[in-house]
């Protein structure tokens, strides 16, 4: 005979208490790091303005990347 803890059997399944998955907990952890002021600022823009802002952001990123490459070749 095998001793078992009361109320615990090998085939026992824990009934789900919610539909949340571990992914939800990970996403929630990431949410705490999001700067919502940037999102709110963007939500105040029109859709066209949001895309124009994205274009400017991309141009800025490309310029930084170009400068980085230039710096690397000078080293």
């Amino acid at each position: 005979m095998t001793a078992r803890s009361p109320g615990c059997t090998l085939n026992e399944t824990v009934p789900p208490t919610s539909n949340r998955s571990s992914l939800d907990d990970v996403i929630d952890a990431y949410k705490s790091g999001i700067d919502v002021t940037l999102i709110d600022e963007n939500l105040r823009r029109s859709v066209d303005e949001r895309l124009r802002y994205l274009q400017r952001l991309l141009e800025f990123a490309e310029e930084l990347r170009r400068a980085g490459r230039e710096l690397a070749t000078k080293r």
Partner: peptide, 26 residues
């Protein structure tokens, strides 16, 4: 993004859920 389940999407997924929550609140 949830269906794709790619780790690199988690940050974007979190931002989208924040946006959805703010739009719902608005």
């Amino acid at each position: 993004k949830r269906a794709a389940g790619r780790p690199r999407d988690i940050d974007a997924l979190a931002e989208l859920e924040v946006i959805r929550d703010r739009q719902t609140a608005s």
